[in-house]
Design a binder for these strands. Structure first.
Lengths: 260, 260
DNA sequence: CGGTTCAATATTTTCGAAAGTTTCGAAAAT
DNA sequence: ATTTTCGAAACTTTCGAAAATATTGAACCG
């Protein structure tokens, strides 16, 4: 009974899904707090709230039309996710970005994304395939956004891009891997946003290639393509976003201030 | 300039530590909120606040002597870390535990711990070695706690155990890996606590073996020992904690209630 | 002229009460 | 006997004001 683990990957009781303790992936939560949290996260991911920007309660309060306590709760969440920072008595600010961070982030993503993808393929179902087809369709219909596309178009593409990548790994059996994968994916979105703005490189239709490899259940090929997909994005950012290389990139008009 | 990543682990600008964006590992933060957060986390990790337990504001308010808003902020953090859950309008509760979760958790830990350890060994310094020696000394001085040791002894052992394991990987260069490793380590502490309570199995002095392998800079051996260390702990929990196997383990006297 | 002190201002942090939900149990209806 | 309805109690959520802390800028010495 105790001989479940002969120094090999854990196998026991994988069916017992009774209680997945991994952190609640942003789904339903408190009504108002969650709403503010979601909006703020989206704003940080899209660099509407810029890296390093000070997050003052006065401004936030009027921007999101809510109270200090609610804001504080949402900010607290963002700190845990790594999208904001806070210090003793001097409030909150958007987390900085840097090349070093993007590289570190991406390396871990390569491992987690491929691990979750391999497991998802292993346990794929019809519904899983259907969602991949569907989400890919929606993604391809929009096409990669260009520098002068509107904010809302870019945001919509971001949503569909995330939905597609989530769909790929949806049947992975490891809640913890899925959770961290998702957090890292969001982190990467901040950098992707900068890349979109400066986008110059031509890229193959990597999402299509991945989709087909996954649907063919070719795990090795799919993982390899996904790995390349992540690495190419890093290359593109390094090539296209000049600010990233020399430490703190301050993008999107550094001095712009909203009147309080 | 763009040819930094030939489909191999990222190498570029590893020196640029200007801005490590990975979430702030619990260090300094707000004064009061952080204090409450730390106490609550410790209580959950030690199962003083039991798995699945409802976290009512009335009780918490008097237990930690603070206001609702502060509690809410701390609870918010705990939810992000996976130690608590929350639902729409019905408050917070301690995250459940289960065998499936422990297995999942542990498998990811094996990867992250070995990855960070290998990197830490690669970049080890004198100060790093010194802290390993020192923290191991403190850990060994206490000896593995037994079932009838007092709560404070067990807690002290938990602190030293964490300090030792943190010391091993301290020089790892990947902030994100370190962050997730730390979160998973804390998660595992909840299960270790149960194992301590029921402890029956005899174990070799694994911490000493790991220490020596690490100090000898034998990366392969150290990682292998660390992997075994984690797996053995899982085996021990499976063998010793009967409740874990059949879904939700409710430990530490299920009916006990504190008077409000 | 550069640096320090101190008061005024701006901002954050904490708190308790009001408003809004959910839960529970008793009474009414099927 | 079982289900439904309703209202009271318990609890959660939200809010704005009071307290605490940090920042700014002007006046003051070395």
């Amino acid at each position: 009974m105790a001989k479940i683990l002969p120094a090999a990957p854990f196998e026991g009781a994988n069916e017992n899904l009774s209680a997945t303790t991994a952190p609640q992936d942003v789904s339903r939560e408190d009504a108002a707090t969650f709403d503010v949290l979601r909006k703020m996260r989206e704003d940080i991911l899209c660099c509407v709230l810029k890296p390093d920007q000070k997050l003052k309660f006065g401004e936030l309060r009027q921007r999101y039309d809510t109270s200090v306590g609610t804001l504080r709760e949402a900010l607290s969440h963002l700190v845990s996710e790594g999208l904001a920072r806070t210090e003793a008595g001097r409030g909150f600010q958007v987390s900085p970005i840097s090349l070093a961070d993007f590289l570190d982030l991406s390396e871990l993503r390569v491992y987690l994304e491929t691990k979750t993808l391999a497991d998802a393929i292993r346990h794929g179902t019809d519904a899983w395939e259907a969602e991949i087809v569907s989400s890919y369709f929606l993604l391809s219909k929009l096409g990669a956004p260009k520098q002068d596309d509107s904010l809302s178009v870019k945001q919509e593409w971001g949503k569909r891009h995330k939905r597609y990548h989530d769909a790929l790994v949806a049947t992975c059996r490891s809640p913890w891997s899925l959770h961290y994968r998702s957090e890292l994916f969001d982190q990467a979105r901040r950098y992707h946003w900068l890349t979109m703005i400066h986008s110059r490189l031509h890229r193959r239709n990597e999402h299509l290639e991945i989709r087909d490899a996954v649907l063919a259940r070719d795990s090795d090929l799919a993982c390899s393509l996904l790995e390349q997909h992540i690495r190419t994005t890093v290359e593109q950012a390094v090539a296209d976003v000049p600010g990233l290389i020399r430490g703190n990139a301050r993008v999107l008009k550094p001095g712009k201030r909203r009147k309080s």
